[in-house]
Simulated assay, not measured.
Amino acid sequence: MLAEARWPEPGDGSPPPLPGFVHSSFAPLVAAVAGRCLRRRTPPAGSRCAVVLVSAAGDRPSADHVRATVAAGGRIGPLFFFQSVPNSVAGHVAARWGLDGPVVCLSPTGNPRADAVAEAELLLHDGDADVALLVLVEHAPDGAPTGAVAVLLGEGTSP
C-alpha cells in the first residue's frame, strides 16, 4: 500500500460540494477521499493510474430522489442523468488528478475491499496500470453516508 485515506477523519464534517453534482453526498465523498489519498502520495510521474470505484448500492440518495420525482410525475434535472452513473465521479477524479489509467466501477458481491484489490491486482498484472487508486464508498439505507476509504496500490504492494 502506497497511501490510504478515510472520510471522515477526526475534524471532518461533510465533504465539500463538487461542482456539477447535486443532491447527494456520494460524488463529493468519492472526490474528497480520493483527493486526500492522492495528496498523501501522488502516483509516480509517468505511471498509469487506474481508478477503481467500489460501491454495492452506488448513489442511493440520487436514485431515490429520481424514483420519487418520477413517481410523483415530476421532471428530473439534467444533472441527474450525468451523475446517475458512478463512472462520472470516477472520471472526474481521474481528470482532476491527471490519472490516465482505466476507470472501473464495481458493485461487490463479496467483501468490497477484497473485490477492489482483486480488480487492482488484475489491472496491474495485465499491464493496464502501474498504480491503482481504490475508492470504497457506501450510503446507509436512509441515504446518509457511512464513510469512504481510498487506497493507492502499486506494483508489489499489498493492502
Rank of each mutant, 00 (worst) to 15 (best):
M1Q: 12
L2C: 06
R6A: 05
R6P: 08
G11W: 08
G11D: 12
D12Y: 01
S14E: 15
P16M: 07
P19F: 07
P19K: 11
P19I: 05
L29S: 05
A32K: 03
C37G: 03
A45S: 13
G46N: 06
S47V: 06
R48I: 10
C49V: 06
V51G: 04
V51N: 04
S55V: 15
G58V: 14
S62R: 11
H65V: 11
V66H: 00
R67Q: 15
V70I: 15
V70S: 12
A72G: 13
A72C: 11
G73K: 08
R75F: 11
I76M: 10
G77L: 15
L79V: 15
F80V: 11
F82W: 15
Q83V: 06
N87P: 09
A90P: 08
A90I: 13
V93W: 02
V93N: 03
G101A: 09
P102D: 04
S107I: 15
S107C: 15
P108R: 05
T109P: 00
T109V: 13
V117C: 07
E119F: 03
D128Q: 14
A129E: 08
V131C: 13
V131R: 11
L133T: 09
L134T: 04
L136V: 14
E138I: 10
H139I: 08
H139K: 00
H139Y: 07
P145T: 11
P145V: 06
G147N: 06
A148Y: 02
A148F: 01
L152E: 03
L153A: 00
S158E: 15
P159Y: 09
